[in-house]
């Protein structure tokens, strides 16, 4: 007796697969966990109120007011394209210019905003400050390529510190040049 072969009709399988595919295509949100990372200072009350004397020359002042206007070292600045180079020069001054920093580990970029400053401007300025430091690190890490490529490579390395080889490069690049961007308590001219 010839046995009936137990077939499952599979002509509709492709349709089902496409339907599922379409469903997941539509509902997918590939999460975007990328951005500017910073470390907040310890809680206000935990810090003993000590007078830290930092010499004027070691501070690079960046101020933004409630109308998103920028002051760099007390001077208004409209075109921010040269700011990154200014910060790099300031950090790597090593005492050459008496008005600029003593050494990279003493250099501090002080970034002060107002409560009315928009988040967009804040991110733009913080981005420039971090870019200056990442450029310096990338150069010291001895990566290859253009400045932009080096910077990108370095940030990829810095994002994956679980890898010991990456950690080694990262620590070597940062040796003696900590990223000291101080985000000061904002003034209260604009906003609530």
């Amino acid at each position: 007796m010839a046995r009936a072969t137990p077939d499952i009709p599979n002509a509709s399988m492709a349709d089902i697969a496409f339907l599922l595919l379409t469903f997941f295509l539509v509902t997918t949100t590939i999460s975007n966990d990328r951005g500017l990372s910073i470390q907040l200072p310890p809680p206000p009350e935990a810090q003993p109120p000590e007078d830290v004397k930092v010499q004027e020359r070691n501070i690079f002042k960046v101020q933004v007011n409630s109308a998103d206007r920028v002051l760099i070292e007390g001077e208004p600045m409209e075109d921010l394209s040269g700011l990154k180079e200014m910060i790099k020069k300031f950090v790597l001054n090593n005492g050459a210019d008496p008005n600029s920093s003593d050494s990279p580990d003493k250099a501090i970029v002080s970034f002060k905003t107002d409560r009315g400053t928009s988040h967009k401007k804040f991110i733009e300025m913080l981005d420039i400050c971090q870019a200056a430091y990442y450029d310096i690190y990338a150069e010291r890490a001895g990566l290859s390529g253009s400045m932009e490529e080096m910077n990108k490579k370095f940030r990829e390395i810095a994002s994956d510190l679980a890898n010991p080889a990456n950690k080694e490069i990262y620590e070597r690049a940062r040796e003696g040049i900590p990223m000291q961007i101080s985000i000061a308590e904002p003034t209260k001219v604009g906003g609530n």
């Binding site: 951005g35 910073i38 409560r115 906003g191």
Partner: peptide, 25 residues
């Protein structure tokens, strides 16, 4: 959004000792 509200959030995060922060961009 203005810095004011973000700073308030940051101050609270500091108090709660959640100091790793990422500004999503």
């Amino acid at each position: 959004a203005k810095r004011g509200i973000i700073v308030d959030v940051e101050t609270e995060l500091r108090k709660a000792n959640a100091r790793k922060l990422l500004y999503n961009t």
